[in-house]
Write a protein that binds this DNA or RNA. Structure first.
Ligand code: MN
Ligand code: MN
Length: 332
DNA sequence: GTGGACA
DNA sequence: TGTCCACAACGCGGA
DNA sequence: TCCGCG
């Protein structure tokens, strides 16, 4: 069981692709050992089971997953920084059993920042926060395939930075999801709400409206519910906002407004998902939605190239400057 | 994925 | 030493 | 107040 220490500058594999990859992150995950200790900005990150296969059909290992996250760190971090993180751990890979974990496990490095959130029950949960590459790799090493951060930053956990529409196909087709997204987009445009869309990497799409921080999570939930119910009423053959499964009509896209409730999370942008093809939750343009995209278009093997080409299409969602919609204008 | 409780 | 086990918990609305 | 739901 070899252990390596430090990031190795030596070039073992030459070629443009390797060079570009290293340039992107400056962190290289060792490939020919099971365990390693990386030193990143003076912090030691212990990585384990690096050769464990996480996607058997694809031959994708835990090291591949860690390398992906190291490479996308610059575009990913602004979206998750300062937010409590819910972990969903897949210790046995994408097809293995998974479990949720909220409390940051111990032992852990003392540089893992914790967000303590008190619940109405009186429970206080200490969630980890992903602030940098080191904490990101620590979290992924736990077996987290996707990242599920809170909508609100830790300094004010009841005032989110966005509202969203979670579009779930259920028994509907993905073409219907695309159609629904365009209608949601039009409706939001009418409300003066700039919005951003991404694939979930699983089945559906996420549409986010970044907002000026102020309204509570309940306010945001209420607004999303109102809009979802109106849309479903206007397009009853395409959409539903019925929360109860048994009462939900078949072949309709679910506008899952309840996902805007306090304490809930969604897979973050650039999260890999436990999908058979290792798909990634990927920002797309409204033009791409119009022309038609597929979940499987965006995967762990090709999203980095897309980011190199297009940058972060969701950057406005991650910065105060881009969080433009003010709820005061909604008081109609 | 990993530490703690048991046998 | 090996095996088993835990690892989350909010809030809506219908009953 | 309990349950289904995600
Ligand atoms: Mn969804
Ligand atoms: Mn959903």
């Amino acid at each position: 069981m070899a252990t390596r220490r430090g990031v190795h500058p030596a070039v073992h594999h030459s070629g443009l692709r390797e060079a570009r990859r290293r340039a992107a992150s400056a962190v290289t995950i060792p490939r020919n050992v099971d365990n390693a200790v990386l030193e990143i900005a003076g912090r030691e990150v212990k990585l384990t089971n690096l050769r464990k296969v996480f996607w058997a059909d694809l031959g994708v290992t835990k090291a591949d997953l860690l390398q992906y996250y190291a490479d996308v760190t610059p575009v990913l971090l602004p979206h998750v920084r300062d937010r409590a993180m819910v972990m969903r751990r897949y210790p046995n890979g994408a097809t293995g059993e998974a479990f949720f974990m909220k409390r940051a496990p111990s032992p852990r490095p003392d540089w893992i920042e914790i967000c303590e959130i008190e619940h109405d029950s009186g429970n206080v949960i200490g969630f980890p926060i992903v602030q940098d590459v080191a904490s990101l790799l620590w979290l992924v090493n736990l077996g987290c395939i996707d990242l599920n951060q809170w909508y609100a930053r830790c300094d004010d956990v009841d005032r989110p930075d966005y509202l969203h529409f979670d579009l779930d196909p259920g028994t509907a087709t993905f073409t219907q999801v695309l159609e629904t997204a365009l209608i949601v987009h039009e409706a939001l445009r009418g409300l003066g709400m700039p919005d951003y869309v991404k694939t979930t990497g699983s089945k559906g799409l996420h549409v986010y409206v970044p907002i000026v921080r102020g309204p509570t999570q309940k306010d945001v939930w209420t607004a999303a519910k109102t809009i979802a119910l109106q849309l479903a009423r206007a397009h009853p053959r395409l959409m539903t906002a019925e929360y109860k499964v048994a009462r939900r009509p078949a072949s309709r896209v679910l506008l899952d407004y309840n996902q805007n409730a306090w304490g809930r999370t969604l897979a973050s942008v650039y999260s890999v998902r436990p999908h058979p093809r290792a798909c990634v939750s990927t920002p797309v343009t409204w033009d791409e939605v119009t022309r038609g995209v597929a979940i499987e278009d965006f995967r762990i093997d090709n999203v980095r190239e897309r980011i190199t080409r297009l940058g972060d299409l969701w950057a406005p969602v991650a910065h105060d400057r881009g969080r433009r919609f003010d709820f005061a204008r909604l008081a109609s």
